[in-house]
Design a protein around this nucleic acid. Structure first.
Length: 584
DNA sequence: GTGTGGACTTAGAAACTTAGGC
DNA sequence: GCCTAAGTTTCTAAGTCCACAC
């Protein structure tokens, strides 16, 4: 891999000797499902134990001070710390919190504290805010001391050895206890996320490694040696009952290989996507209802980059859907809308409760099928009642090995970036770096819109936009002034060599002003267009980094203008192997 | 086939750090 | 040097997909 000069060499020429290198690559890999031969680490890092409140900070119930037991006090503080957040005003959050909090109380406390509305966390909340403020106002030296202490923890717990490579661990810290913050209308929001003890943690490492020591006075739940998985430690989280894992950082060899593989599968789809599209167009006419539903779903997944949409257990999570789990109430059919025919209006909550709203003209056959699927159904009924993600993926893997619904998202995202970069390059004159970067961001934005990657507009957005506009205005005035001065200087310069120097100076000033103005105007455009769109998710997860690396080479833009340190680390494999002529 | 759990990727928010303007 | 806004990193929730049991 990229740490090994020999393999690095192979990487460089992989695009030329693709097949050959695949074989070489295979040689590097272990047999079936084996992820490593040697794994050594220090175990996860546990958050500090809870420290009781100072005597002068009191909790009040019904106006009277109450000294809580340690466990009840800790949970009360979790709530107090969140009081500036909207969460704590929500009925569901409050009820869940109160129910779980009462479980932590002593019998006596439980008999006293019956109503959350009579609880006064004011002093706890104030203390928390004060602590946050104090941390902010620490002196430079104190901050440095903290930084060094943190670094020490990273040095000790943040790395592991995996097959002779020292690798960074992604999340070596055990998640601290707190109140569960589900997204959207999550039925479990506010529930207590319990403190994890070493007795809850499973350690995974090799037999012949130094087994990590549990914290003093504790023991591990289990130490196992399973080299078919990549995690170093795991525990079961109490709110949803799911597993949490300690895994490697994205810049590790293991993760990098997997990432490369993901993009190679997506590139393979490129070679057969036409045939697959032709097939699902045919399937739209199938006599089998299931096949037709599959074809329509695939049409959506391909055209709109929808997620697969697994079934979810009702009442356990927020009500969100993907393609296969769409319900009748999530779409509206319009025979004509705004002058377009066969328009489907989508309105549903997707992953993380992000709203997907889109009006899309579709081909007639899809439209007719949708009408058919919706016949005699209520809003709450499944649109695709004969389809689920298992069936869909089983079909897809028969069309191409490794093909699943999410490959379409990767493929369509990457191919869109590539096309957009090409188009923008041809249609716009891209002279300076700022304009080039704007065009890159626009291409990136097209992908983010396709994948519906949204963000909450920054709280200070309007203000900061106004500030920028004010700066632009004042710079314009400056430019006007500079131009006048230049004119004047030119007049005076005639005949005098001394004054020629002044002219040159004034010229430079005008030029500088113009450059700065352009830069700001480009920045304003970029920021406005980006108000509610998150570019980072697609950059990190969907766009083949080789497209971006090749673009930088062709456009003579430094890579660090589009990739920060983290991204450059994660995509080290792509940076090493990509030449300017790379095509996705 | 269907249900379930495990392992892994993808996701936006929040916390923290740095850069740039005054 | 100080303050603010932008950029980066951390955090952990919420998806996908597969294997395995029945």
């Amino acid at each position: 891999f990229y740490y090994c000069p020999l393999i690095l060499h192979q990487y460089k020429y992989m695009h030329v000797l693709h097949v050959f290198c695949l074989l070489e690559w295979e040689e590097e890999k272990y047999e079936d499902g084996i992820k490593w031969k040697f794994l050594e680490h220090k175990g996860p890092y546990f958050p500090p134990e809870y420290q009781t409140l100072p005597d002068d900070v009191k909790f009040y119930y019904n106006g009277k001070p109450v000294k809580l037991s340690l466990p009840a006090e800790e949970v009360a503080l979790f709530f107090a710390q969140m009081m500036d957040h909207e969460y704590t005003t929500k009925e569901v959050f409050r009820n869940n919190f109160f129910r779980d909090w009462r479980k932590e109380m002593t019998l006596e406390e439980r008999q006293l504290i019956m109503d959350l509305n009579k609880c006064d966390f004011g002093e706890l909340h104030a203390m928390h805010k004060q602590k946050v403020e104090a941390r902010k106002n620490l002196s430079k030296e104190e901050k440095l001391v903290n930084k060094e202490a943190n670094q020490k923890i990273v040095d000790e717990y943040g790395y592991c050895v995996l097959d002779h490579h020292r690798e960074r661990i992604g999340n070596f810290k055990i998640e601290p206890p707190g109140l569960f913050r589900g997204r959207g209308d999550h039925p479990k929001q506010g529930m207590l996320k319990k403190r994890i003890q070493p007795e809850d943690a499973i350690i995974n490492c090799s037999k012949d490694s130094r087994i990590p020591e549990p914290p003093a006075g504790h023991r591990w739940k289990e130490v196992r040696h399973d080299n078919t998985v990549t995690w170093l430690a795991s525990w079961t989280e109490n709110v949803q009952g799911s597993c949490k894992y300690v895994m490697l950082n994205a810049n590790s060899k293991l993760k990098g290989e997997k990432d490369w593989e993901k993009y190679e599968v997506a590139r393979k789809l490129k070679t057969c996507v036409d045939a697959i599209r032709a097939q699902y167009q045919e399937d739209l006419k199938s006599k089998q209802m299931g096949t037709r539903q599959r074809a329509v779903a695939l049409y959506f997944i391909d055209k709109l980059a929808l997620r697969a949409g697994n079934e979810k257990e009702e009442g356990e999570t927020a009500d969100t859907v993907g393609c296969c789990s769409l319900r009748v109430e999530h779409i509206t059919l319009h025979d004509t809308l705004d002058g377009q025919k066969c328009v489907v209006e989508f309105d549903f909550l997707g992953k993380d409760c992000i709203r997907y709203y889109n009006k899309v003209p579709v081909i007639k056959r899809v439209f007719k099928n949708l009408k058919l699927f919706m016949e005699n159904k209520q809003g709450g009924d499944d649109l695709f009642d004969r389809l689920n993600t298992q069936l869909l993926n089983k079909h897809l893997s028969s069309l191409m090995p490794g093909l699943t619904a999410k490959v379409f998202r990767t493929y369509n995202a990457s191919i869109t970036l590539q096309q957009q970069l090409k188009e923008l390059r041809n249609s716009e004159c891209l002279e300076n770096v700022a304009e080039k970067l704007l065009s890159y961001n626009r291409a990136n934005r097209a992908v983010a819109i396709l994948c519906n990657h949204q963000r909450a507009p920054p709280k200070t957005f309007e203000q900061s936009m106004a500030n920028l506009q004010a700066k632009i205005d004042s710079r314009k005035e400056q430019l006007d002034l500079a131009k006048k001065e230049l004119k004047q200087a030119k007049k005076e310069a005639k005949g005098s060599s001394d004054n020629k120097l002044v002219v040159e100076k004034k010229k430079k000033a005008v030029q500088r002003c113009e450059e700065q103005l352009l830069k700001m105007e480009v920045q304003a455009t970029d920021r406005e267009e980006n108000k509610q769109i998150a570019l980072s998710t697609s950059k990190l997860n969907y766009l083949d980094p080789r497209i971006s690396v090749a673009w930088c080479k062709n456009m003579e833009v430094q890579l660090d203008k589009i990739y920060n340190k983290t991204l450059r680390d994660k995509f080290a494999w792509a940076i090493d192997m990509t030449e300017h002529d790379f095509v996705f």
